[in-house]
């Protein structure tokens, strides 16, 4: 078996680099959106008002147990056609990329919400009470007292989920994206399509993924343990 290094020659190398950038873009955008979504959904899940709480609980319950591949297929292929059939109007031409980002954000957002909920339950109720006696509004208590502590308590789980979200970017394979927007796995498929061999492009992106996930894992876990240390001593 001859490992000719064609993958490092142009134009394939350029494609791979573009793919790496695209992967990072998808990861960061969907991860940030998921984090904000997770915060908001967690806030809704803990309200005493029944309607929003039920809606948020349902959202989490649905998206936590939906696999991404069929969901993406549904959203990008079937949903526009179903919509057309039911309402007679064409689905808005949103770039498939937006749909992909939305689905990834929703999936990770639901998982973030579940993790944060556990964190919030771990914050001592006295913290909220003290803040109340200090005149802070409910929103200020949530944002300045509860959520910062909750996030620190579950910091390792949040870090794991962030990395999982980055790995989920490969689900873009099932979405028909224009060639310029393909992320790493998509570019590998493209190269394999031209050279009839998966081996080199696949190994190359596997190495990149390992570096990315192990590297960011190391960084994130350092942050996570530092954040936890401050809160772990208890609300004294």
């Amino acid at each position: 078996m001859h490992f000719g290094n064609y993958v490092f020659a142009e134009p394939y190398l350029g494609w791979l680099v573009r793919g790496i950038l695209m992967t990072l873009l998808i990861s960061v955008v969907s991860g940030t959106a998921a984090a904000l979504l997770g915060l908001w959904v967690t806030r809704l899940r803990l309200t005493s008002r029944r309607g929003p709480r039920l809606a948020a609980d349902t959202f989490v319950m649905i998206f936590r147990n939906l696999p991404l591949v069929p969901l993406l297929l549904f959203v990008t292929f079937a949903l526009p056609r179903l919509w057309l059939q039911v309402t007679g109007r064409a689905f808005p031409i949103w770039a498939d990329l937006y749909l992909l980002l939305a689905v990834l954000s929703a999936d990770s957002g639901a998982n973030f919400a579940e993790i944060l909920r556990a964190g919030v339950l771990g914050v001592a109720p006295q913290q909220q009470e003290v803040a109340r006696t200090m005149g802070l509004s409910a929103g200020a208590i949530r944002w300045h007292v509860v959520f910062p502590q909750a996030a620190r308590i579950v910091a390792p789980a949040l870090a794991t989920r962030w990395i999982q979200n980055m790995k989920n970017s490969t689900m873009a394979l099932v979405v028909p994206l224009p060639l310029g927007l393909l992320e790493m796995a998509g570019q590998a498929e493209r190269i394999a399509g031209e050279t009839f061999s998966w081996v080199q492009p696949l190994t190359a992106i596997a190495v990149v993924y390992l570096l990315l996930s192990l590297g960011s894992g190391w960084f994130l876990n350092r942050w996570a343990s530092r954040a936890q240390a401050r809160v772990q001593a208890g609300a004294a």
């Binding site: 790995k167 490969t170 394979l173 061999s197 998966w198 696949l202 390992l210």
Partner: peptide, 19 residues
């Protein structure tokens, strides 16, 4: 652990034959 599941599947399905 560091690999996405799709990548794992692709590796297992495409590497054995050429190697």
């Amino acid at each position: 652990r560091g690999l996405p599941i799709i990548l794992l599947v692709l590796l297992v399905f495409t590497l054995p034959y050429p190697i």
